Amino acid sequence: MLSEKEWENEPEDDDSSESRYERMAFTVDKGQESIRIDKFLINRMEGGTRNKLQQGIEKGFVLVNNQVVKSNYKIRPGDHIIMYSDTAPELTEVIPEQLPLDIRYEDDDIIILYKPAGMVVHPGSGNYTGTVVNGISWYLKQQQPHLSESELPRFGLVHRIDKNTTGLLVLAKNEIASVRLASQFAEHTVQRRYIALVWGDFTDDSGTIVAHVGRHQRHRKIMDTFPEGEYGKEAITHYRVLERLGYVSLIECRLETGRTHQIRVHMKYIGHPLFNDETYGGDKIVKGTVFTKYKQFVENCFALCPRHALHAKTLGFIHPTSGKQMLFESEIPADMQSVIEKWRRYVGAKGMNVE
């Protein structure tokens, strides 16, 4: 049986993570005998079947040293194995649905999609319909009517963003593109930049947060930081201040890793929770007075942007077949922009020093 450090389930809540669909990653022990990879993995899966596992391997959802292998591949000591969720036994059935999708770019291999706030990325407990995957499945079914239900593209998601985070997603339209994109996420070579409105002012103009991220020890539906690295997975977030707005700051975050709720947890860890993030303490007055007028101002801001203020603005990667560098940018959504403008007016009216 795998330890919790080796096996990390998808989030238990419906607020999707910023992690790629990695479910298991480890290095084969030095003393391990050379056996078929399907036999090796089935002994480490709970509730799975060898047939389902073999199907997953053949579809490219198991990588050995960042390469696709066949079920008869014989593992060797030192092999690094990554196993994606598509090989897990508890997959939710994907029902194709015609949904409004904001597709920003598409070719034979990839789709760049702008996800609005409130839209869940994939089906799961409590959200079996209306997700990005449901919509993309229907969309691709129109292009390729021969696709069977089992071939529709859960594998096409190589990363996710939270339900209430806006911004860009890349989806793979075929297995080769999926594997090659997944490898880039695994190797941390994908460019991901987020815009966030957070509570408080910063002493420095930029910084780096290094703290493991893992599931909270008592509240299993949220995440927490573990600075000593005894639990969770390594997580690194680089940030820089874009604009100082008195009691809040507009920042850019660059992800070096992609863990569940990474930016939200890291910002809470350093005392700057995301504005209106009810999960991590940003949905109350963190900085500033509690006088009636200011309290009303903050509540009006919460009403304008009734979610955590986080936007996945930039996405860059190497195209999986052409090898060209791809870079996509997206605009800050209206709800966040309106709150930013409201804080600018407030700071100007109060004559606050935000230099």
Score class of each variant (00 low, 15 high):
K5V: 07
D13M: 03
D13F: 01
S16C: 12
S19V: 00
E22Q: 13
R23C: 05
M24R: 08
F26I: 06
K30L: 14
E33F: 02
I35D: 01
F40L: 07
M45V: 04
G47R: 08
L53A: 05
G60L: 05
N65D: 15
R76G: 00
P96E: 02
E97Y: 01
L99W: 03
R104S: 05
D108P: 00
D109F: 06
L113H: 01
K115T: 05
P116V: 06
H122V: 01
G124H: 01
T129A: 09
V132L: 02
S137Q: 02
L140G: 00
K141W: 06
Q144M: 06
L147A: 01
E149M: 07
S150V: 01
P153C: 07
F155W: 02
G156M: 05
T166Q: 10
L171W: 01
K173C: 00
N174Q: 06
N174P: 02
N174T: 05
E175P: 00
E175A: 09
I176G: 00
W199P: 07
T208H: 03
I209T: 08
V213Q: 10
R218K: 14
Y231A: 13
G232C: 10
V241I: 11
L242M: 12
C253S: 13
Q262C: 11
I270H: 09
I270C: 11
H272I: 10
L274P: 03
F275M: 10
D283S: 14
K287D: 07
G288L: 09
G288H: 11
F297A: 04
C301L: 06
R307K: 12
L310W: 07
A312T: 08
K313D: 14
H319C: 09
P320G: 07
T321F: 00
G323P: 04
K324S: 10
F328H: 12
F328G: 09
E329D: 15
S330K: 04
A334M: 13
Q337W: 12
I340F: 11
K342C: 12
R344Q: 14
G351A: 03
E355N: 12
